[in-house]
């Protein structure tokens, strides 16, 4: 995946069943962000794989003061890429059926 400077990782073991999963996001390379990033640490949150949109969560992080508005796309893309990977892994581990 493209290196956005923002890293998103699972914050719990994925059992492949839960719709809502714990994620952890932090900035690895602040230079990739457009705005001035105030280093607050890692942000832990839950994400509903079925019903939520990465960009909406990114906007909530902006609204909460973690990032500036100009970086909402980078944060959203970082979350979306990780979510896509989680979904892809789940599909691979599901039996193709009969």
């Amino acid at each position: 995946a493209e290196d956005t400077g923002v890293r998103v990782e699972l914050n719990e073991e994925d059992d492949g069943k839960k719709a809502s999963i714990a994620l952890k996001l932090w900035v690895e390379d602040a230079k990739k962000l457009k705005g001035k990033y105030k280093d607050t640490g890692a942000i832990e949150f839950t994400f509903d794989l079925l019903n939520e949109v990465a960009e909406v969560v990114a906007q909530e992080m902006v609204d909460s003061g973690f990032f500036l508005e100009c970086d909402v796309k980078i944060v959203g893309k970082s979350i979306r890429d990780r979510v896509a990977l989680i979904k892809w892994r789940r599909e691979r581990t599901v039996s193709p059926g009969n």
Binding site: W26, A42, E60, G65
Partner: peptide, 27 residues
């Protein structure tokens, strides 16, 4: 512990914690 909670108006809970060791990468 060094954690803090931020609750967004939409109800989502963000918990701020120390960055994992893996952040240490070569620049």
């Amino acid at each position: 512990s060094a954690t803090a909670q931020v609750v967004h108006s939409a109800g989502r809970r963000f918990i701020v914690s120390p960055v994992p060791e893996s952040r240490l990468k070569d620049y």
